[in-house]
């Protein structure tokens, strides 16, 4: 099956500092892919670049194809149709993405007018249907309200309704629940997965929370310093991470049950994009680093049918992991 979106060699630099250094990622129709990694690893920039939303001074190269058509450098009119139409995006801070002085109805109807061939009463009916769909009680009346009259969780629901206005094939959800309390986060994630199933929409879920991604995605890509370092089906990644950084992330997560163990913290910090180490960017923090790691950045290579890892010592790392497990 040909992918819905395929990203190849996507690179972005700001003022000479490389923040994306060749991202490769493909996404099938209806698939849910998670993107995890520390803050600053390039999760958001990947999709901002793909949709042409970065400031002009950003240097972007590589390729982003939607159904085979190149998006990078595409005419503005075409990008306008894609954004909010075939690909919609919701952000971490929902309040700032809504206009505080316009009613929810105005904002929903504007989004509908832009991307759907609907007129007059049909627009209003569709706006109400969308609010109903995302679980805003008393939707008909609440259309008249302004953003500040809704709670944080409800604002995020409204953002989801706006994103759905264009009937997208792909929804990019960038940290959609980070600002919300646990019980409200659970509501929003449940809503997202229900809608995704019903509309057979693909989704990229960006999160720094491994648990959130693991539970809601078929496949997970782990980013580090502007690259994807491991990519695998969710259950396999968490049961058997291969890249030392992916292993570190999972070991750093305190367990919620079973015996307590000392957390395996990854030493050091993420490299500054302006001073990226040569070779593997993770080498300064990697327990398995050896001389060849400093020579060239390892590229993503298949280790099984559906898994890729960017580590020259992937085999050694896997053995080390098994060794730890057997202890």
């Amino acid at each position: 099956m040909s992918p819905l979106v395929s990203i190849a060699g996507l690179s972005v630099a700001f003022g000479g500092a490389p923040v994306l250094r060749g991202v490769d990622l493909a996404l099938g129709k209806g698939e849910a892919v998670g993107l995890v990694g520390e803050s600053g690893s390039g999760k958001s920039v990947t999709w901002l670049a793909a949709l042409g939303l970065l400031p002009r001074h950003a240097k972007v190269s590589g390729s982003v194809r939607l159904d085979g058509r190149e998006l990078l450098g595409a005419p503005a009119a075409e990008l306008d149709r894609v954004r909010g139409g075939r690909i919609a995006m919701i952000f971490q801070d929902p309040a700032s993405a809504l206009n505080p002085v316009l009613t929810i109805r105005r904002q929903l109807c504007e989004a509908l007018a832009l991307h759907r061939d609907l007129q007059g009463e049909a627009v209003k009916a569709e706006a109400k249907r969308l609010l109903d769909l995302v679980g805003i009680p008393d939707a008909g009346r609440r259309l008249q309200a302004y953003p500040h009259e809704f709670s944080g969780g409800q604002v995020q629901r409204i953002m989801i309704a706006m994103a759905l206005a264009g009937n997208p094939d792909l929804l990019i959800a960038d940290e959609p629940t980070t600002a919300l309390d646990a019980t409200i986060q659970a509501q929003i994630l449940e809503l997202l997965s229900t809608i995704r199933r019903e509309m057979s929409m693909a989704m990229v879920l960006i999160s720094h929370d491994l648990g959130v991604v693991a539970e809601n995605c078929d496949r997970v890509a782990v980013m580090y310093a502007g690259r994807i370092v491991e990519q695998a089906p969710s259950n396999q990644l968490f049961a058997d991470p291969v890249h030392p950084y992916a292993q570190g992330l999972i070991g750093a997560l305190p367990p919620l049950d079973g015996p307590r163990r000392r957390l395996t913290a990854i030493p050091g910090t993420v490299p500054d994009p302006a001073h990226m180490p040569g070779g593997c960017a993770f080498a300064p923090r990697c327990a398995l680093a050896a001389e060849p790691c400093g020579l060239a950045a390892p590229s993503l290579a298949l280790i099984s049918d559906d898994r890729t890892v960017a580590c020259i010592r992937a085999e050694a790392s896997r053995r080390a992991l098994l060794g730890i497990a057997a202890e």
């Binding site: 646990a182 019980t183 994630l189 648990g211 693991a214 539970e215 809601n216 969710s234």
Partner: peptide
């Protein structure tokens, strides 16, 4: 119970989760 159930965990799918209705 709802809080513990809402805490996402790798290796577990959201099935069986207690999702509380209502606002915070």
């Amino acid at each position: 119970q709802a809080l513990v159930s809402a805490s996402p965990a790798p290796g577990r799918r959201s099935a069986g989760r207690i999702v509380l209705a209502g606002d915070p």
